[in-house]
Write a protein that binds this DNA or RNA. Structure first.
Lengths: 338, 338
DNA sequence: GCAGCGCTGGAAAGCGCTTTCCCGCCACGC
DNA sequence: GCGTGGCGGGAAAGCGCTTTCCAGCGCTGC
């Protein structure tokens, strides 16, 4: 049907104006174009079904309308919520978001950044959790430099120390507040289902939790580490049970892990919360209907995505900005008095 | 640090070869380049940290490495699972996926397609459910034409009739099989929590379910429609309860809706499955740990995403291919004998 | 009355890359 | 020995757009 491709040149010719004029009309140029020419161009563009070639624009302007979003696993509700926030903001700004997934391999983060750089993405939101892997971190830092060097902006969700804009959830404070709240329920012996030790998010939550227990004069918890996934939680809980720990309350550093842990407890006939209280972190919306309802620390995930996107799209100074978002302890049915 | 931008020309000059040669070396050209030149180019590219400008490549080749993925809501696990499948395949193929979300507004689908066309995306996977809205459908069809016209490929997940490659889940057959299985449990009176009537997926599942009931000689179910979301399920269930229906088993056309429905039942003191059995559709992995475990029809969502991506990336004939994936009834604790 | 200015339109030079076309070279066959 | 190919290398013509630069024109201000 339509010709292979309608170009600006065709529109210009058809409208009887120069390429320059057509370009000025069809893209917010600072230059004025007279009313009638302008209208003529607009009309022919419409008639011909002209769609500007984004690659050509990107090339000519040396900047594209792409925004990168890097997550570990889009299937994980933690990331999909953040993604929702990011895409909403980006789409409102008329930008297009490109989604990269690392599959939790730290080195993929740098690779993706490099790809994004190749595409001249205008900005990138890194939602993956920072690791303590020095080499990966260094490569990532180098890529971030290269990216910003080239005029792109980078924001991280929950990774500080990279010299970029950052949205920092109150992992430490949240963990601490949660520990105190649980201590107030009367629990004396705690266990923690921690994430992989190289994940900073996991470490922070754990550290905060320990601090909170210490505030309450309670002995440090048993810690069992597992993967940052549902199965990780399941396995960690199994390990915990096998260890014959005397804990009456267990904190999984992630709601998703808590789900796995609850499955494990159920399987082993441990009732929640009668035999064991359990709490998570994040307050994943999709998981709010579980029974028993999970006590947790609420993070405004979608909003965090929005904030990150906002930071990264709003030119801002060259100073790295940090926005802290607080977690709010929400005690529900999965934690009982002891 | 690094220069503003390393271009192919710089690499070529530094390596003492022509632009053409450098290009041939650095991108799989059919043309041969002698061993030593080739090696020299490779080395200087490496040294200079050369990254090809994807926009320029796209422009010159008239095809980019972008793959579009259009979903209604990335937060919905149904879509995020599909998205995971699509991104995995795309990334393996060295492509970049751009994520568009419609927020369930049918007209956004066409808009996004147009944007994707502007970016010369090589392919698009449309995961949103087809509606019966004639106008939106027509616009979408036009955009799809324009897109394919331009050399792009389009695949749909669960939308047939658009003349594109399609991955079709057995919505009808699944609904039917589920109805039969539930009938075998002894239920006689059924209710269905349906999605918005203009959504084809919802209609198909409902139609299949009705057919299954009819197979079993059971009267048609009461149908209450709600939004295709957790809250939609909640409200539909509330409405059902208010209607004093005598149903002993309710089928929510979506697991996510079933979650909302279960919350409503719980709130109203209706025990599942003792007082009411409930079944969903999709078998969302994230929701598998809920209590009581939800009976449902399992769809290999991630795999569906992979298949769709596979179809769309594999040049294939010009014939529209259709891949059917079957749903498998999984009876769990949320449905009891009656 | 004219220099000077602001404003609009067009020509054309890129943006960084791919690819066609051409050229020189060598091996080969008659 | 010379025409024929085949092959590796380079020059250059785009790809579709933006943007600079220049030309023309109608004003204002002295």
């Amino acid at each position: 049907m339509s010709a292979r491709q309608v170009t600006l040149a065709e529109v210009a010719k058809q409208a009887g104006v120069s390429l320059a004029t057509a370009s000025r009309v069809l893209n917010g140029s600072t230059r004025q174009v007279s009313e009638d020419l302008s209208e003529r161009v607009l009309r022919t563009a419409e008639e011909l079904g002209y769609v500007p070639n984004a690659s050509a624009q990107a090339l000519a302007r040396n900047s594209s309308s792409l925004v990168g979003l890097v997550v570990h696993d889009i299937t994980d509700p933690y990331f999909s919520c953040i993604a929702a926030g990011v895409t909403r903001v980006a789409e409102e700004a008329g930008l297009v978001v490109v989604l990269g997934t690392t599959g939790r391999r730290p080195e993929r983060e740098a690779e993706l950044l490099s790809t994004l750089r190749a595409h001249r993405a205008r900005a990138v939101v890194l939602a993956g959790s920072r690791t303590t892997d020095r080499a990966a971190q260094a490569r990532l830092a180098a890529e971030i430099d290269a990216f910003t060097e080239q005029g792109g902006r980078v924001a991280c969700v929950s990774q500080a120390k990279l010299g970029t804009d950052t949205v920092v959830p109150g992992n430490r404070a949240g963990g601490r507040a949660l520990a105190r709240a649980l201590a107030e329920l009367g629990h004396k012996k705690f266990a923690v289902l921690g994430g992989p030790s190289e994940l900073v998010v996991a470490r922070d939550r754990l550290a905060g939790f320990k601090a909170g227990l210490s505030d309450a004069g309670i002995a440090p918890p048993v810690v069992v580490n597992g993967a940052f996934t549902r199965d990780g939680g399941y396995e960690a809980a199994m390990e915990l049970l096998a260890s014959k720990s005397r804990a009456t309350c267990v904190f999984a550093v992630t709601d998703v892990m808590a789900m796995g842990a609850m499955a494990a407890l159920r399987e082993r006939g441990v009732r929640v919360p009668e035999d064991m209280s359990i709490a998570g972190f994040d307050d994943i919306p999709t998981l709010r209907d579980t029974v028993p309802a999970l006590s947790t620390v609420r993070l405004p995930l979608e909003e965090m995505g929005e904030i990150a996107a906002g930071l990264v799209l709003d030119a801002g100074g060259d100073e790295a900005r940090t926005v802290r978002v607080a977690g709010e302890v929400v005690l529900r049915a999965s934690t009982a008095h002891n």
